[in-house]
Simulated assay, not measured.
Amino acid sequence: MPPRPEPLRVSDTAGAERLVAETLQRMQELEGVLERESAHIRVGRLREGLADEAHKTALAGAYLQGLEEVKANAVALARFTPAGVAALREAHRRFAAAIETNQAVLATARAVSESLMKSLSSELARAAQPQGYGARRAMPSPYGPVRATPLVLSRSL
């Protein structure tokens, strides 16, 4: 649904029900995108999980606009469609749980990625040290202190 150019003002039951239905639809669409993203990332398909980023951003913007319209019309919604307000509250509770799950999956993926990068960096640094007999110690360099070779990271998945 495209954003409205002017703020919506609910003045009857039909308008209240339409606003509730639009907000619920936006919430369900965004929840579906979050669930697909979480499912892909859980199994390590990062590219597929992050493919809908633009769509997710657009849906999130539309959802936030819908929430602002709901807040601006809270009194009218409570008056014209109290069942719709209850449905919005329940749907919002489920949506908050979906967001929490998605955030946990993303945090886990980030932690695993960081751990892998640290391990890879340690292995590369260890492999770059000269091997020889006797106790390990850093070999002095005639060119000053030796610096570790940088680890190159590609951010494009």
Rank of each mutant, 00 (worst) to 15 (best):
A39G: 11
A104T: 06
V33Y: 00
L116A: 14
E6K: 12
G44R: 01
T81P: 07
F95H: 05
A87F: 06
E22I: 12
R137D: 10
A51E: 03
A86P: 04
M1E: 11
A62S: 13
L77C: 11
E6Q: 14
P145Y: 09
I41W: 00
T101V: 07
A72N: 11
T101W: 01
A128R: 03
A148F: 10
L19H: 00
A111F: 01
F80R: 00
V152I: 03
Y63Q: 07
H55N: 06
R36S: 01
A51L: 05
K71C: 11
N102V: 01
A148D: 08
V105E: 00
V20N: 02
S38V: 00
A125E: 09
R126I: 10
R93Q: 07
L64D: 15
V20Q: 03
G132Q: 03
R137Q: 12
S11A: 15
P2K: 12
E114N: 09
S119E: 09
P130Q: 12
S113L: 13
R155M: 11
Y133F: 01
S122I: 13
R136Y: 10
Q129Y: 06
R47L: 13
R155N: 12
E69T: 15
L30P: 02
L24Y: 00
S141A: 15
L24G: 07
L24F: 04
L153P: 06
L77P: 02
N73S: 07
Q131S: 14
A138S: 12
A111V: 11
S38L: 00
G61R: 04
L8W: 02
S122P: 01
A91Q: 05
D52I: 00
A127E: 09
A97E: 05
N102F: 02
Q28P: 03
A21D: 05
Y133L: 06
R42D: 05
A72H: 09
I99E: 11
R79P: 03
G32D: 00
A135N: 14
G61V: 12
G132M: 03
T149A: 12
R47N: 13
E123N: 13
V70G: 04
R18F: 14
S156D: 15
A74Y: 04
L59Y: 01
T13N: 03
Q131E: 13
T101K: 03
P145N: 12
E35W: 07
Q103P: 08
S156F: 14
L106V: 13
E29H: 09
A58P: 02
P150I: 05
L77G: 05
R126Q: 08
A135C: 13
M27E: 04
